[in-house]
């Protein structure tokens, strides 16, 4: 118990945090407005045919909106590109002003202020997958310090994070005892959970002897003095 007791507390506290906090809230779903505007077909003057003739290698072509303007997004040699659906012009990479505009556009609270905007091109923070790089990180000055990550190439909101997600992430790492990859198949966890299972079996045996009426009666007859463990 001496060795495993602390991990029991870690498991129960981290587990309790994860089950009490609503997972949709943790994902930051309440931070975004999901009222998307509609595409106006008349604004689409550049067709899929035009695009494919110009970029025959284009894959995963998608016609969507950038704020209010229709744009095509597609992959070209593993890189995201963006082209205006009005005239077929290739659109520039998202700059800081546009990134802030886009982040605010997706954010639920319209009156929010931005506390920081940062371009990340390599070594993503723990909370961001490297496949989204390069991105703009936009931090909001709001409850639970939310951050939105806006893709530089596509202008899309790729990840949303806030303090409770960050705590949840650590809780999960502590829960599976893996502080690097957060995978549940590490040896430390194997040793700890085997020991914990053994300790619990011993604990159950103790519970039986302490609480079983038959045994208690016998114990009361045998000893009238306080027992060694002090209870």
């Amino acid at each position: 118990m001496l060795f495993i007791g602390l991990q029991f507390v870690v498991w129960s506290v981290s587990g309790a945090y994860m089950v009490i906090m609503d997972i949709d809230y943790i994902h930051g779903d309440s931070l975004v407005t999901n009222e998307k505007q509609n595409i106006v077909p008349e604004q689409v003057k550049y067709s899929f045919t035009d695009l494919l003739t110009r970029y025959p290698q284009a894959e995963n072509i998608e016609l969507g909106l950038l704020l209010t303007k229709p744009v095509y997004r597609f992959d070209l040699k593993k890189q995201k590109r963006m082209v205006s659906a009005g005239d077929g012009q290739q659109l520039p990479k998202i700059n800081i002003a546009m990134a802030i505009k886009l982040a605010k556009h997706h954010y639920a609270n319209r009156q929010v202020e931005i506390s920081k905007a940062q371009l990340i091109t390599e070594k993503p923070p723990r909370e961001l997958s490297a496949r989204y790089l390069p991105v703009w990180r936009i931090d909001f000055d709001d409850f639970s310090s939310p951050s939105f990550y806006i893709s530089v190439n596509s202008g899309q909101l790729v990840t949303k994070r806030h303090s409770f997600w960050r705590i949840f992430d650590w809780m999960f790492a502590f829960h599976v005892m893996d502080y690097i990859d957060e995978e549940a198949d590490n040896r430390l966890l194997l040793i700890a959970s085997t020991l914990a299972l053994l300790a619990s079996i011993f604990g159950l045996v103790l519970t039986y002897f302490r609480l079983a009426p038959k045994y208690n009666k016998k114990q009361n007859h045998q000893l009238n003095k306080p027992n060694k463990a002090g209870c």
């Binding site: 998307k36 509609n38 595409i39 077909p41 067709s47 998608e62 016609l63 969507g64």
Partner: peptide, 17 residues
Amino acid sequence: INTSLSITSEPLKEVSL
């Protein structure tokens, strides 16, 4: 694409090929 889009009168959020 515009002929294809006019097939439906429902809201239009995205079109992918």
